[in-house]
Amino acid sequence: MITKQETEHIAKLARLGLTKKEIGEFQKELSVILDYFEKLKKADISNVKAFSQSVLLENVMREDEAKKQDLEIVDRLIKAAPDREKRYVKVKSVL
């Protein structure tokens, strides 16, 4: 069973605002689900490597290059920002 404090802590880590009611519900539901996940502890994983990918066996590398985009696409991306001034995206103060 996870505690109310743990639930609130996870929500904060996840940057997720939750109502008091949601905290209570998630505390219960997550506990039930995590109990079910305890099953995983029975699996014998000694000498097993962690899975990384299903079919590809090598890392894919490429040059880290900036590619020029049409001004129209750039404008569309900027326009998608909810809060902006001229061609800047506005962000509230951090502190």
């Binding site: 996840a14 997720l16 509230k92």
Partner: peptide, 23 residues
């Protein structure tokens, strides 16, 4: 502040199953 924007946007924007899985 910025943290408020994150918390409130995600509280209002996500439904309960998505919140549950993020948690």
């Amino acid at each position: 502040n910025l943290l408020d924007v994150y918390l409130q946007t995600r509280e209002q924007g996500f439904g309960s199953e998505v919140k549950r899985r993020i948690m």
